[in-house]
């Protein structure tokens, strides 16, 4: 009986939290108070992580100092992939529950995710030149990241093409969901396709597990880049909220209060 009651309480409180997420003023306020401490922490964490990774870890036995780009490349790639699933999830939520804030989250996610994907591709190319001897390889992982970039840009382009922004978000949500199916298929297909043509002569020089002295700063950087992503999302969503709610009372009050 007691457990059932507590489950009920948890469910109702979760529902009310979910309900509040749909309210622009609440989201604007709560994201503002989160950003007030998350933004400085992120900046410090990124600075510490970069200094740790780029300056204080030992150089790699085979790659020398060039491997240090891993501290930017891997976190960017991980966040780029995660952002796509967040975008698709937000799209699904907005299609199913017609939540306006999910639309805004999805719209904010696309350019941010595209930037992280681009960063991962560029750092990968820069890393590839000294270690693989080439800027670009049509390897499964690289090709699927490139397709990921195309999918992000497709969502952005589709959103911009619609005049009716409500329809634009719905169309983008459908496209994002279709793309979700595509990414694993692309990854597997290129994997098989590549291995058919020629044996993978160029591989990640890894294989040997990373030493913990290199792994800890990597984990630190992954966490910091996730925090950076969260900050970018919230900042971008706040701008969108203000734009779309510009004519409502609470935004006007906000503007007059901050002016006085």
């Amino acid at each position: 009986m007691g457990t059932r009651a507590s489950i009920c309480i948890i469910a109702t409180s979760m529902w009310s939290f979910f309900h509040k997420l749909g309210s622009p003023p609440w989201l604007y306020k709560i994201s503002g108070s989160i950003l007030r401490w998350l933004l400085p922490i992120t900046v410090v964490a990124l600075a510490v992580g970069l200094a740790w990774g780029l300056l204080f870890t030992a150089p790699d036995f085979r790659q020398g100092n060039s491997y240090r780009i891993i501290y930017i490349h891997v976190p960017a790639a991980i966040v780029a992939l995660a952002a796509y699933y967040i975008m698709a999830l937000a799209g699904a939520v907005s299609l199913i529950w017609k939540m306006k804030m999910a639309d805004i989250a999805m719209k904010a996610c696309a350019p941010i995710g595209a930037s992280f994907t681009f960063l991962a591709l560029v750092t990968g190319a820069i890393w590839g030149k000294p270690t693989w001897g080439t800027w670009w390889v049509w390897d499964a992982r690289i090709t699927s990241m490139l397709v990921l970039l195309f999918l992000y840009l497709g969502v952005v382009a589709l959103y911009e093409a619609f005049d009716n922004k409500e329809a634009a978000s719905k169309a983008c949500a459908v496209l994002a969901l279709v793309g979700t199916v595509n990414i694993p298929i692309i990854y597997k297909s290129v994997d098989w396709w590549y291995s058919l043509h020629q044996p993978a002569s160029i591989k990640m020089t890894g294989g040997s597990s990373i030493d913990s002295s290199m792994l800890y700063p990597l984990f630190w950087m992954i966490a910091s880049v996730y925090a950076l992503f969260a900050c970018c999302m919230m900042l971008s969503m706040r701008v969108e909220i203000l734009k779309s709610e510009g004519k409502t009372g609470w935004v006007k009050r906000l503007a007059t209060e901050s002016n006085s």
């Binding site: 195309f150 840009l153 497709g154 382009a157 496209l175 279709v178 298929i185 692309i186 297909s189 396709w193």
Partner: peptide, 16 residues
Amino acid sequence: LISLLILPLYMPVLIF
């Protein structure tokens, strides 16, 4: 626009 949206989806079919 339609080519930008669909071409990434066409890629697995092309590969196989």
